[in-house]
Amino acid sequence: MEFYKRHKKWFIVLFVLTFAICLSIWYLFNLKHNDTVDVKADFTVNALAFIKEFQQDMTSANKKYSEKIIVVNGNISAIELADTTTNIKMIDTTNNSFIIFAFQQQHLTEAKMMQIGDRVSIKGSCSNGAFSNILETEYITFKRCGVNK
């Protein structure tokens, strides 16, 4: 008891530190992605101009856009089923380069209601642009997308 009284201050510091570490670990383990639609966009682009930027300089376009939240305005060229979800594509028909959008779980219904030819505004996290050796064309992938409000 005497030992506790003499070192009371240190016991409190130790308790607070342990509590703070546990809280930080709990916070990190339970982090979730925000709803992309509610996140402020870094860029707003037109689909065809965006594809062209990647075609002209893939490296600098990736540096500029990778992992950024982007609003892409354009027309839907194709709708593809991906497992139980739906992907939306915007294609540059002159060279078959394309942007593909995978939707966030809470926005899948919006994706399923879209039609080919619809003019849409999609907000998502740009993963990367690359050249496909399989399709022999450039493509840009987006994840965690939703319809821009």
Binding site: E67, A82, D83, N87, S127, A130, S132, N133, K143
Partner: peptide, 23 residues
């Protein structure tokens, strides 16, 4: 990752996949 590019040649049996890691 649900935006993987894949091809299948049903005659030769050749199969290919490409996946963007950041996706």
């Amino acid at each position: 990752n649900k935006t993987v590019i894949a091809s299948l040649d049903t005659k030769s049996g050749k199969l290919a996949f490409e996946s963007t890691v950041k996706s």
